[in-house]
Nucleic acid binder design. Structure first.
Lengths: 163, 163
DNA sequence: CACCGTGTTTTGATTGATTCAAAACAACTG
DNA sequence: CAGTTGTTTTGAATCAATCAAAACACGGTG
């Protein structure tokens, strides 16, 4: 009797989504599991460590296949390259640190999309509501308190832009 | 007795924010007023019509000055280049059409930032909550109903990515 | 277990959006 | 109205992502 190896879970996840199981896909999925909210570039670096021949384009291709198949999700916070995460199927949101760009998951209060309804949607048929919280992570709160850090660290990209 | 000309309002708005009043800035602000939720490129085209010598970089520079001074806001919906709007100071949100990318304002239910609080912020100090609604604008609802349009038009960029 | 077809990955190049830097120029101050 | 500061132009570079064709690998079939 053989115990299920960790990689089998990843393999199953890919196969269950209807995609072919390939070595680069397993590597990207493992990297995504170990470092959620990663950029394609970051995943590329991680994958390269164990699979040196892998190209950046392959990572983009794998991620496109994953998001298309529904086993990964792409998020695009303002001022950041796209980030990817395995957690899908629930309608959770994200909180981003305005100082260090750390990202954490935030559960949706309601649990189903759309978890919010606009007061006046001007005739739009709303399907999903995406929420991004901006603030300071615990580490950066401490750093701001002790040293005199620039207040610009408190401003989300939505309001930045000064030269 | 001379009536206040429209351009005076724009001039005042720029001067009141502490910025120098220049011809390109007036042109960009007027374009922004006439076409909210415009990209830098779009504003550049509009500005060029009345001020042919203007460069794209000037528009980027003006927009950076405006957002830095707080008289314009930059929004970055997933899958779209940055959009700009004059409406600032209130914490309103946006609804984006997943089919034609039309953008409309949506008033914030509460009126002050943050208009939402995450259930568990994992120790983050939340300053603002940004909400993007995704759905179909009235025109695209009609188009989807009459013709057999691809269902992919219903999927926000957050979940797209299939090749 | 070798072969075949479809789909994936590599290789190489290109695009789109934005930013950087230095020189020419224009707005407000005194 | 001259000087100083800040803005715009000009020209180039960067970053993120995408496109296309050829080489290759997965997984089904004989």
């Amino acid at each position: 009797m053989r115990a299920a190896e960790p990689s089998d879970l990843l393999t199953d996840s890919i196969r269950a989504s209807g995609l072919k199981v390939t070595v680069p896909r397993l590597a990207v999925l493992r990297a995504l599991d170990q470092a959620p909210h990663s950029t394609a570039e970051r995943l590329f670096t991680a994958v390269r460590a164990e699979l040196p021949g892998t190209s950046l384009q392959a990572v983009y291709g794998v991620l496109a296949a994953f998001t298309g198949a529904g086993i990964a999700r792409k998020i695009e916070p303002a001022g950041s390259p796209a980030l990817f995460e395995r957690r899908v199927g629930d309608n959770h949101h994200h909180i981003v640190c305005t100082r260090c760009s750390a990202v954490h998951d935030v559960d949706c209060a309601v649990g189903e999309a759309p978890c919010l309804r606009p007061a006046d949607a001007s005739g739009f048929a709303v399907h999903t509501a995406e929420v991004t919280y901006w603030g300071l992570c615990p580490g950066c709160q401490a750093a701001m308190a002790s040293s005199s850090s620039p207040l610009s660290a408190l401003i989300p990209p939505t309001n930045k832009g000064a030269r």
